[in-house]
Computed example of a mutant assay.
Amino acid sequence: MAEREYPTALGASTPTTITLLGHDLAEDVMGSVGFGELAFWLATQRRPGPGEVRVFEAVLAALADHGFTPTAIVTRLTYLSAPDSVQGALAAGLLGGGSRFLGVTEDTGRFLHDVLASVGGDLPADDAGWDALALTCVRDRRSAKELVPGLGHHVHKNGDPRTPRLMRIATEEGLSGPHLSLFAAIGRVHPEVLGKTLPLNGAGVCGAALADLGLPLELLRGFALLARTAGLIGQLAEELRNPVGNDIFLSVDLNNRSVPPEPQAPDTRP
């Protein structure tokens, strides 16, 4: 019985060579292909153009680090608890990439994609058309008592500086597509529905930009996590130089107070 083969277009090795994406890793890739370009290439199995690389790397930069977020804090605290496990500290931070932090990138991209899919190929031709489509989808979310992904930010309440910059980069590279157009329209029209003005957040615009690049929606959170990995390595490096993890731990441990348990509702199950 012949041994089963497992074909792959990614990395493969022989005793003398390593190939990656059909190229000689040592001679054709190392020193010639940047990491952002390689990450895009690995995910799509097509080599991106310079403009695509610029937009993609701008997204990675936008998502790399945003201060003492829960993901950063848990990475530092895990390292405090297990300094022998850098991989555990990084993994702990990445596992926190959910619907409130980092996952917004995927949620926004999927939301915009679903709205665009609902109109088929009949996309708006001008800002007025995009605004009308945006009004409809914001009203639908409001009626369903659901939030609009990518709308609002807990810190940048008057505008996320990453959003206009990434939109400008995409426009400069001719890569501002329907997802970014719809997202921008949502930014213009949502006050009419919600009665207040919220910023388009950076994680959301990253999801729109990645979707316009044609990257798989199923991997959008993965790209956010790729970016944040670099940020978490930076957090660990700073923790080594200027540790604050123990102070964070003690600020909770030394300031807890005992209270009686809250009464539980009676169990009415039969």
Rank of each mutant, 00 (worst) to 15 (best):
A2H: 07
R4N: 05
P7S: 11
T8S: 08
S13R: 08
P15M: 10
P15K: 11
P15S: 11
I18K: 02
L21Q: 07
H23V: 02
A26V: 10
A26K: 13
V29F: 13
G31H: 05
F35Y: 11
L42E: 06
L42F: 09
L42D: 02
T44S: 14
R47T: 03
P48Y: 06
P48K: 07
G49T: 12
V55Q: 12
A61F: 11
A62I: 10
A64C: 07
H66W: 07
G67S: 05
F68R: 14
T71D: 15
A72K: 03
T78Y: 14
L80V: 00
A82S: 15
D84Q: 13
D84V: 01
D84C: 06
V86M: 15
G88K: 02
L90K: 02
G93W: 00
S99L: 12
R100I: 02
L102I: 15
G103D: 12
E106Q: 12
D107R: 13
D107G: 03
R110V: 13
F111C: 06
L112Y: 01
D114E: 15
D114H: 15
D114G: 01
A117G: 00
A117N: 09
S118E: 14
G120K: 01
G120F: 00
L123T: 11
P124D: 02
P124R: 03
D127M: 08
A128F: 08
G129A: 01
A132K: 10
A132V: 01
L135R: 15
L135Y: 07
C137A: 12
R141G: 09
S143V: 03
V148S: 02
G150H: 08
K157Q: 15
P161K: 06
P161H: 03
T163H: 04
P164W: 13
L166R: 12
L166I: 06
M167K: 04
M167F: 11
I169N: 12
A170D: 11
T171Y: 04
E172C: 05
P178F: 01
L180Q: 15
L180R: 09
L180V: 03
S181G: 06
S181W: 11
A184R: 15
A185D: 12
I186L: 14
V189T: 13
H190Y: 10
K196C: 14
L198Q: 10
N201W: 05
N201D: 05
G202I: 02
C206Q: 07
G207W: 01
A208I: 04
A211M: 12
L213E: 11
L213C: 14
G214Q: 05
L215H: 05
L217G: 03
L220C: 03
G222I: 00
A227S: 07
T229A: 08
A230M: 15
A230S: 14
A230D: 08
G231V: 04
G231S: 01
L232H: 00
L236W: 00
N242K: 07
P243F: 08
V244H: 06
G245W: 00
G245N: 13
D247T: 03
I248E: 06
L250H: 09
L254A: 04
N256D: 12
V259C: 07
P260K: 09
P260W: 11
P261V: 12
P266F: 05
D267C: 05
T268W: 02
